[in-house]
């Protein structure tokens, strides 16, 4: 008997009507994906392959043209407290302090003020921002803003955490630090994670399984288990096994990246 997946995407298709040309543009072309409870799955793919769009469908912000998303076997039609997004740009409310931003999700869900405050403070501590509760976003570094972003999603205690290239805008050192931090927090919070990234090493370092998307229209090309034991010190990125997996994923993506580059050149010419 196989366990029921925590999150399941069944043949998700999505096409937009382009207002300028009147033609339909396919963004997602039958995505199938299963994620088990507590699993950390990363999606990698060339830019413009519909990774972020797929995440929005899973969150319920965008309705799929066909197919369905199931959480614990129940169909998703709109955003709900069982899923929370860590957005690409920190997207913090600039007029709220760190604590105010972390509380925001709880306020949206109608949690009483006192309880919201207590839960928010706990999460601020978990992401290592104690002492910065009353700072405004513009007073924080990019890495700290992403910590707030992460805390804001975790505080509603979602079953599934959806992460949309959260570290893409950070410098290389901060990014590595944040990846390590994320694994620490993930181990403490025990969440199912769907993590979108275009960086192969980031996907491999973080995930139990890396799902490779093909170029537009997006669909699952392959799924690769990352058999590197945890906890993973940042040094695993220098191991031969890590490099071998990196090469394998790169081979899967390479053709799509090159095709995309050719198309871009063509479009600009």
């Amino acid at each position: 008997m196989t366990a029921r997946p925590k999150l399941e995407a069944q043949d998700i298709r999505l096409s937009y009507l382009q207002p300028r040309t009147g033609t339909a543009l396919a963004a997602l072309d039958g995505v199938n994906l299963q994620i088990m409870e507590g699993e950390f799955v990363a999606i990698v793919g060339p830019s413009g392959c519909g990774k972020t769009t797929f995440l929005s469908v899973v969150d319920g912000l965008i309705a799929a043209t066909a197919g369905r998303v199931l959480v614990d076997g129940e169909a998703v039609t709109r955003p709900g407290p069982d899923r929370a997004v860590v957005f690409q740009d920190a997207s913090l409310l600039p007029w709220r302090t760190v604590l105010g931003n972390v509380r925001y999700g709880l306020e949206c869900l109608g949690v009483a003020a006192r309880e919201a405050g207590a839960r928010a403070e706990k999460l601020v501590a978990l992401v290592g921002l104690s002492g910065f509760e009353h700072h405004y976003p513009h007073e924080l570094s990019g890495g700290m803003q992403q910590r707030v972003n992460l805390a804001r999603a975790l505080v509603v205690d979602p079953k599934i955490l959806l992460m949309d290239e959260p570290f893409a805008a950070l410098d290389a050192q901060t990014r590595e630090l944040m990846q390590e931090e994320l694994l620490r927090i993930w181990a403490a919070a025990k969440k199912t994670v769907l993590f979108i990234t275009h960086q192969i090493d980031e996907a491999l370092y973080l995930a139990d399984r890396v799902v490779v998307f093909s170029g537009r229209p997006g669909k699952v090309k392959d799924s690769i288990a990352v058999d590197i034991e945890r906890p993973r010190p940042i040094g695993v990125k220098r191991q031969a096994r890590f490099h071998a997996l990196e090469d394998r994923i790169w081979e899967l993506i390479e053709e799509d990246v090159k095709t995309k580059a050719r198309e871009d050149r063509h479009a600009r010419a």
């Binding site: 969150d59 912000l61 709109r78 955003p79 709900g80 407290p81 929370a84 997004v85 957005f87 740009d89 997207s91 409310l93 007029w95 925001y104 999700g105 306020e107 949206c108 869900l109 509603v156």
Partner: peptide, 27 residues
């Protein structure tokens, strides 16, 4: 109004009244 902030509110299932009060009015 920053469209990303509206997405945040929607993602947390904020209703229209709350979206207005918490995002649109302050900005």
């Amino acid at each position: 109004v920053d469209a990303r902030l509206i997405r945040v509110a929607r993602s947390f299932s904020a209703n229209d009244a709350l979206l207005f009060r918490s995002i649109i009015l302050p900005s």
